[in-house]
């Protein structure tokens, strides 16, 4: 599947790229909102891993914009801020994974949300 990584930290993106590629996925990278929206339109991602940073709540704006663009695209919020769970905008994401050096949870979650979306209501269209 195609995984879109949205994170402004170069090192973090590199780590995720290598991890997901090792799992056999294709990886798209965006370092900001603009690039992310561009890739959602043109790159056909199956899932978005979106970093959310505190300042300016830009990440949540991006989340809302991606959601508006493609309501069926699964989004996994990936952030160092556990407190984002309380921001209601974050609830439109399919999953919420706090950043960790252990990427097992992130990899499992990405696989699960994609599988769930494929099975879910309307999943028949994307089979």
């Amino acid at each position: 599947m195609n995984v879109l990584i949205v994170d402004d930290d170069d090192h973090q993106r590199l780590l995720y790229r290598e991890t997901f590629e090792a799992d056999g996925h294709l990886v798209l990278e965006a370092d900001g909102a603009r690039a992310a929206l561009e890739l959602v339109r043109s790159g056909h991602p199956d899932v978005v891993v979106l970093d959310v940073n505190m300042p300016g709540l830009d990440g949540l704006d991006t989340l809302a914009a991606i959601h508006a663009l493609d309501r069926r695209l699964p989004i996994v919020l990936n952030t160092a801020y556990a407190a984002y769970r309380e921001q209601y905008v974050s609830w439109i994401a399919d999953a919420y994974v706090v950043k960790s050096s252990d990427l097992t949870e992130l990899r499992d979650t990405v696989r699960d949300v994609v599988a769930r979306r494929a099975r879910g209501p309307g999943g028949a269209e994307s089979s």
Binding site: D9, H11, Q12, L15, E18, T19, M54, A80, Y81, V98, K99, S100, S101, D102, L103
Partner: peptide, 16 residues
């Protein structure tokens, strides 16, 4: 938050 971000990267690359 400021600490968790670099730590996640450090840990991730260390595992790799």
């Amino acid at each position: 938050h400021e600490i968790r971000n670099p730590l996640a990267t450090i840990g991730g690359f260390a595992r790799a």
